[in-house]
């Protein structure tokens, strides 16, 4: 294509390749050093100086041990805890390490379901989750279940649930912990994050932080025994 470039009196005619190879190789090395080494390292240094806590993953510590990150959801199944959204993450099967199995909230390998809207497995899974959700939370057979409570998040690590979802779980948690509803309700209100500037994002509740607040109100051991009594009571 360059053959049709008409020669011009003003431009010296040299091969278009002349003197290009050296700069090309040097540009790769130079840009790699600047953008691949100096830039991320300098950013790390300044970030760790200014915001060491968030720069290191917003970790929550109790005593000496890390119990999670404020930003990353955890899997909860116990009756005295609020439950998160379904998660499609997988991991090595605990029974047979050569195989993969569903391991919800595996933060080492984020994953969405990637099931399309007409995929039979998706519809079946949602149907099953709706049934489980109603049973777990003692809802009527036809009760509406918020869509986000029965669909897998994109990352598989979504730390939040909707206000509607949390409200439907309140009754179960209050019973399991034998705490008054008013107390749970005010905890929920305190843990509801609003939209940014009242405009962006959705009102939401961080499940891990809410459950931590519950545990602070009532130590986990007591909660677990109250939960067992509660379950016996329900039956």
């Amino acid at each position: 294509m360059n053959a049709s470039n008409a020669p011009s009196a003003r431009e010296p005619q040299v091969s278009p390749l002349h003197g290009l190879l050296g700069p090309c190789v040097r540009s790769a090395l130079f840009v790699a050093l600047v953008t691949g080494v100096a830039y991320p390292l300098a950013t790390t240094g300044v970030a760790q100086l200014l915001w060491p806590e968030t720069a290191s993953g917003s970790l929550i510590r109790q005593g000496g041990t890390v119990i999670g990150s404020r930003l990353i959801g955890q899997h909860f199944t116990a009756g005295h805890y609020f439950h998160p959204r379904p998660s499609a993450t997988t991991g090595p099967d605990p029974a047979d390490h050569g195989r993969t199995a569903g391991v919800p909230y595996n933060a080492a390998a984020s994953l969405g379901s990637n099931q399309g809207p007409t995929h039979a497995a998706l519809i079946e899974a949602v149907q099953q989750r709706v049934r489980n959700y109603r049973r777990t939370n003692g809802l009527a057979a036809g009760a509406a279940v918020p869509v986000e409570a029965v669909t897998a998040s994109a990352s598989g690590l979504d730390p939040h649930i909707s206000v509607a979802n949390a409200r439907l779980q309140m009754d179960r948690v209050a019973r399991a912990r034998q705490l008054p509803m008013s107390e749970i309700r005010s905890l929920l209100a305190r843990h509801t994050e609003g939209r940014w500037l009242g405009l962006l994002g959705e009102p939401r509740i961080n499940v891990l932080l809410l459950n931590l607040a519950l545990d602070a109100r009532q130590p986990p051991a007591t909660a677990a025994s109250a939960s067992r009594e509660g379950e016996a009571h329900v039956r």
């Binding site: 709706v130 869509v147 986000e148 669909t151 990352s155 409200r167």
Partner: peptide, 24 residues
């Protein structure tokens, strides 16, 4: 199959499969 997808003040509604709660 029973998922409530209409929007309200307390939930985003819509097709939330593969989406994150904080963005809606």
């Amino acid at each position: 199959v029973g998922a409530e997808q209409s929007r309200s003040a307390a939930q985003p509604g819509g097709n939330m499969e593969g989406k994150e709660m904080r963005f809606g």
